[in-house]
Amino acid sequence: MKNKTIDYVLRATWQAISRMYNEEASKYGATMATGFALLSIDKEKGTPSTTLGPKMGIEATSLTRTLKSMEEKGLILKKKNPNDGRGVLIYLTDYGKEKRALSKNTVIQFNESIKKHISDEKWENFIEVAETINQLIQEKKIFNSAENNENEIS
């Protein structure tokens, strides 16, 4: 992938991963979003619905559709949050916990397979680069830095 931009490489790779997970999930009548939601819900204490979207990095409307489908399939239960009468807690059913374990194993298998094909040093470099990108974005150092602003056209 020589001469490709960082965002191109990340996007193309994520799309390939997404397709792979969706293909695997479809064997079980699920989607990658369902698997990700199963992994994001605390299997013992449940998870407030308001924290689930940000945790998964998806918009509320997409989350609502995913949760509705999961509830219809018997994977989750929604209960009023006893600490916040306006909120809802999402709990995994026994069936949801079973499917969560399957999702977890799928993610572990993917990670182990990738790690077999790259050295520890390359893995550490990859993590370091990804963390640096995330940090620069969180600290708004990409487009809002003084360094970049010096190059603005007056």
Rank of each mutant, 00 (worst) to 15 (best):
E24C: 06
E131T: 10
E112I: 01
E150N: 09
F143R: 03
I76G: 03
N81W: 03
T132N: 12
L89A: 07
L63H: 01
W123V: 12
P54L: 09
N149Q: 13
K115R: 13
W123R: 05
S62Q: 13
D120W: 12
P48L: 15
K2I: 15
I118Y: 09
I41N: 06
K141R: 12
I118S: 03
G46M: 14
L10F: 10
S145T: 04
N125Q: 15
K43S: 15
P54T: 05
M32I: 06
M32G: 02
G85I: 04
K97M: 04
I142P: 00
T61N: 11
E131V: 07
W14Q: 13
T106A: 13
K104L: 09
T34Y: 06
E139R: 06
T93G: 01
T13E: 13
N81F: 04
I17W: 14
S26T: 02
Q138T: 04
I133Q: 03
A60N: 13
E121D: 11
N3I: 07
K79F: 01
Y21D: 03
E139V: 00
T106L: 14
K68A: 08
T106V: 11
K104A: 03
K80T: 15
V107Y: 11
S18T: 11
F126V: 09
Y95C: 00
I76L: 10
L77K: 12
E44A: 12
A37M: 05
I118K: 06
I90G: 01
G53M: 11
E150L: 07
R11N: 15
K97V: 03
G85F: 08
Q109L: 12
G85W: 00
S113G: 15
P82N: 05
F143P: 02
F126T: 15
I118H: 06
E44I: 13
G57V: 07
G46I: 14
P54R: 08
I133H: 00
S119W: 03
N105H: 10
G87H: 05
K73A: 04
R100I: 06
E150W: 05
E23T: 07
Y21A: 05
R100M: 08
E98M: 11
K79V: 08
I114K: 10
K73Y: 01
A25Y: 00
D7P: 03
E139F: 02
S40F: 04
L39H: 04
G53V: 05
S49M: 08
S26P: 02
E128W: 02
Y95P: 00
K141F: 03
D84H: 13
T106E: 09
L10R: 07
D94S: 15
